[in-house]
Amino acid sequence: MTQATEEFFAALPSHAPAVLRAPVTGTLQIDLASGNRTEHWLVRLSPGAATVERSRGPADAVWSSSADLFERLVTGRAQAVSAVLRNESTFRGNVMLFLVFRRFFPTPPGVRDPRETAREQAGRA
């Protein structure tokens, strides 16, 4: 597992209060494949809180991805929904958990909030 992925999962609980504002509760199992080895992460989500453990378990949803793709996701070089739509990763179960979880991923490098751009344009006018 890459250091970026390890750091992402370690920081997840501290980011949860800002990210998990919606009233969504459930458990997401994330399976990351690398060669013939698969690592499992179990993420329990609730409003304002997240817990992470390295294990399999009963889950409301399962997201399977390559470890390489997941590293690109946690570094902002790929987008989760696009990866699923392109069949680069698979998802089954409660789709709301996936849609909420993807908010933990950073935006791609160089992307700016359109509201900030609009404020700059309005300030120049």
Rank of each mutant, 00 (worst) to 15 (best):
L42F: 05
Q3G: 10
E53S: 09
T107W: 15
A125H: 14
A49M: 12
G26Y: 04
V52Y: 01
S89A: 15
S66A: 05
A122D: 04
A118I: 14
V111D: 12
R102Q: 05
L28F: 01
Q79I: 12
G76H: 03
R103S: 11
A83H: 00
E116K: 13
E88S: 10
P114A: 02
N94K: 06
T38W: 02
F70L: 03
R112P: 05
T117Y: 10
L20K: 11
F98D: 02
E6D: 15
A59S: 03
F105N: 00
P47C: 01
V24A: 07
P47E: 00
S55E: 03
G110Q: 01
D60H: 09
L12T: 08
A78C: 08
E6G: 14
S14K: 15
T117P: 08
F105C: 00
V95T: 10
H15L: 15
E71G: 06
E39R: 14
F91C: 01
P108E: 07
S65C: 09
L28N: 00
V95N: 08
Q3A: 12
V19Y: 05
V81K: 14
R72E: 14
A59N: 03
V111Y: 11
V74A: 03
V52N: 02
V74S: 01
R56D: 04
P58R: 13
T51L: 07
D60L: 07
P17A: 05
P17W: 05
A18E: 09
G57H: 04
L28S: 01
V24K: 06
E120A: 11
L42K: 05
A118K: 12
I30L: 09
Q29R: 11
F105P: 00
F8P: 00
A4P: 06
D31A: 15
V24M: 06
A11P: 12
D31N: 13
P47M: 00
A61I: 00
N36G: 11
Q79S: 12
E71P: 04
F8Y: 00
R115F: 08
F9N: 05
G26K: 03
T5D: 06
V24N: 06
S14F: 13
E39N: 14
A4H: 08
R103K: 14
G26T: 04
R56E: 06
E7W: 13
P17S: 05
T107G: 15
G48C: 06
Q79V: 12
A33H: 12
R103T: 10
E71T: 08
M1I: 10
G110P: 00
W41C: 12
R72N: 11
N87V: 14
S66G: 07
A11F: 12
G35E: 00
G76D: 03
P17Y: 05
D31Y: 10
A18D: 09
F101V: 02
W41V: 14
P109M: 07
L12F: 08
Q121P: 09
T107R: 15
R44G: 12
A16W: 02
R115H: 07
A50W: 08
T5C: 08
F70P: 02
N87G: 14
L28A: 01
N36S: 12
A16Y: 01
L85Y: 06
V19G: 04
P17D: 05
T117E: 13
F70W: 07
A50S: 09
L99V: 15
R92N: 11
A18L: 07
